[in-house]
Design a protein around this nucleic acid. Structure first.
Lengths: 217, 217
DNA sequence: ATTACTATTAATCGAGTAT
DNA sequence: TATACTCGATTAATAGTAA
């Protein structure tokens, strides 16, 4: 069985949308169906106006119409969306931080507001993940941003943080945190969790890590 | 009739490759076939190992397998190849200009700087090509911009021109020229060549024309 | 060589319905 | 409610050929 879409795609692949001579036998071999089926299906594609067809004794001159091209382009857009736009996983490599995460997560002010917003008291430290910069925005785009307010401790003010709930390695719940006014390199994200992720997952620098959105928790 | 590929694509589109609950009726409405057909096709997809399927009383939990994802990705690669390679050709229709090209290409100043930059003295006239506006930028993006300086003829200044080397109809070398400060409609590009293209290629208005980048010349 | 018609076989669909 | 089985009707595939 060969669907009309697959036949159209095969023709497009070979002809690159240019007018081109085919034989029904040639296409039947490529798609593993009978010559008769190709003959019939080509007439169906013509009926649908996906191709223009000029049947000769020596073969059939075929050109994909604008309409046929649109059909293919629609599927392309769908697949493009699936495979490039919507990144429901973020892959990265463990990287060493400068100890800043440890300092900030140790502050009562952040601990309390994270507990309130995310439901856990963060381990005093962050896991730094080096990722492809271009992937971060599309990954975060589809997620719910949780705003963790800043605070004043009597001496200085600490800025707000945006958090995104994630599941780390399909095991441990946590969050990506992005300070509102970040001074970080953009290809590094910081991850927090209730637990010490380096220990729990036995991670060392340059290890691969996968995180996924987790809106349930 | 709904092909297995289309069903898989629909599931991917909705679930984004996550495990998700579907009902056969829901999918039958979306794809305009019977509930029974969806039920059967889902079992076929499972047989092919494109999905994993957990049939319950309240619905079917479906997840696309790695194999299913690969099937979709193969089609995606094919389509990507088709629709991105196309950028390396620009199709358009011959259109009548206002004679401005003829005037400018007749000027010694431009003739000399074009000779220097592109290696030929342009025929006194331009060929106007009407193209899909959205295609121009991606076509030009991959090409080398050649800057043709403006000049002062003692009376007025003539602005600079950006040029892109092309091969016209696989036969004649030429260039797309875009004035730095253009007043042209954006869906029309101007083409120059050493020869009179209308005569050489026996062109009349609304004839189709194909140009390709030509960085060699 | 082709394409494509005809007749036959095979696959698919979906209404009814059991679970 | 669901899913999915049975089975008659419909549709698609192909072997054999005509053109």
């Amino acid at each position: 069985m060969v669907s009309e879409f697959e036949l159209l795609l095969k023709i497009a692949d070979i002809s690159k949308f240019k007018r081109m001579k085919f034989t029904t036998i040639q296409l039947s071999n490529l798609l593993d169906v009978s010559q008769q089926t190709i003959s019939r299906k080509l007439r169906l594609l013509e009926d649908k106006k996906w191709i223009s067809r000029d049947s000769k004794f020596e073969g059939i001159h075929i050109q994909i119409t604008q309409e046929g091209k649109t059909i293919l382009h629609e599927k392309f857009n769908l697949l493009k969306e699936l495979f490039t736009k919507l990144r429901y996983e973020l892959h990265g490599k463990i990287s060493s931080g400068l100890g800043e995460g440890k300092y900030y997560m140790g502050l009562k002010g952040y601990q309390e507001s994270i507990q309130k917003a995310l439901g856990f008291v963060p381990y005093e430290g962050t896991l730094n993940l080096k990722v492809d910069e271009s992937l971060i925005s599309s990954f975060l785009f589809h997620m719910t941003k949780i705003e963790i307010p800043g605070f004043f401790d009597g001496e200085r003010t600490y800025g707000g943080i945006n958090a995104y709930k994630i599941m780390i390695e399909n095991k441990i719940f946590g969050a990506i945190i992005i300070p509102e006014r970040t001074h970080h390199r953009k290809n590094i994200i910081e991850i927090i969790s209730e637990k010490n992720l380096r220990n729990e997952l036995a991670l060392k620098d340059d290890d691969e890590l996968v995180v996924k959105p987790d809106e349930k928790n």
